[in-house]
Amino acid sequence: MANNIQTAHRATAVPMKLNEAGSIAVSGPKRVTGGTPDDSNRVILELDAVDVFYGDFHAVDSVTIPIREKEITALIGPSGCGKSSVLRSINRMNDLIDTARVEGSIRYHGVDLYGPTVDPVEVRRRIGMVFQKPNPFPKSIYENVSFGPKIAKYGGNMDDLVEESLRRAALWDEVKDKLEQSAYALSGGQQQRLCIARAIATSPDVVLMDEPASSLDPIATLRIEELMFDLKQQYTIVIVTHNMQQAARVSDRTAFFSVDVSGGQRTGHLVEFSKTTELFTNPRESQTEDYITGRFG
């Protein structure tokens, strides 16, 4: 079928890795693709008619997306359509912007994240974030990973946790001999993987990624995509990307946003939310088709 062309078989460079139980598992060639998800996974996050405002500016209008457990959900769309705004509203990062306001409801396991008794700090411990530009702390590699668990009063062995997080982020072999060195001495791709290790060190449920590979070369990009695919076994991932091929390769479902100009305001809205295979082979909306085939403007 048509989507066979979209999917690609790729062999991983790492033949062996520690699995969850600590035993050695040999991983064969791996297929980096979203595949066709069935609908059996639970909806873990429900964005229900979410609006985002910055002061008087209506940035995003009524977005409804169910996000399922252990799936990768991709948000795509033209610049300024509000992908980051929606993503940041999921773990209440928008609270940090004075003017930002979120309406509608975002339910996490059925609990409204914007409810009056919800502590945003606790939300962010469960819903971690990886940013567009690698932003390690100006500290050692070790401290970068251990900071999150430390403030969360992690009781276990910190060295083990740091190692495990770095291994999961496919960075351990490259940094194991220089954990005390500055994180800034790493390359951009390594820094981004460090940021992923940092995000998963606190064992979040959901990891939000805002264009995590936008500043990386194809090899580093591939590693991060493979990593996402691995992480999917345990985490729920929401990723914003401008790279259509990346969305097609890694995600299970894709949300396409667009932006309408009305009354001088550019307001973003959701155009289509479908399984990735459907969206990229047979989008329902002509707007989606125009965007993904590059026929815009």
């Binding site: 411990r125 971690g128 932003n135 403030i151 940092r198």
Partner: peptide, 26 residues
């Protein structure tokens, strides 16, 4: 840089933890 603050909040730090551990040291 704002990104350092974001990184701190992103891993679930409180404002005080972000300031003490990252902003002031930087």
């Amino acid at each position: 840089p704002y990104s350092i603050r974001e990184a701190g909040f992103g891993v679930g730090a409180t404002q005080w933890e972000v300031i003490r551990s990252h902003v002031v040291p930087s």
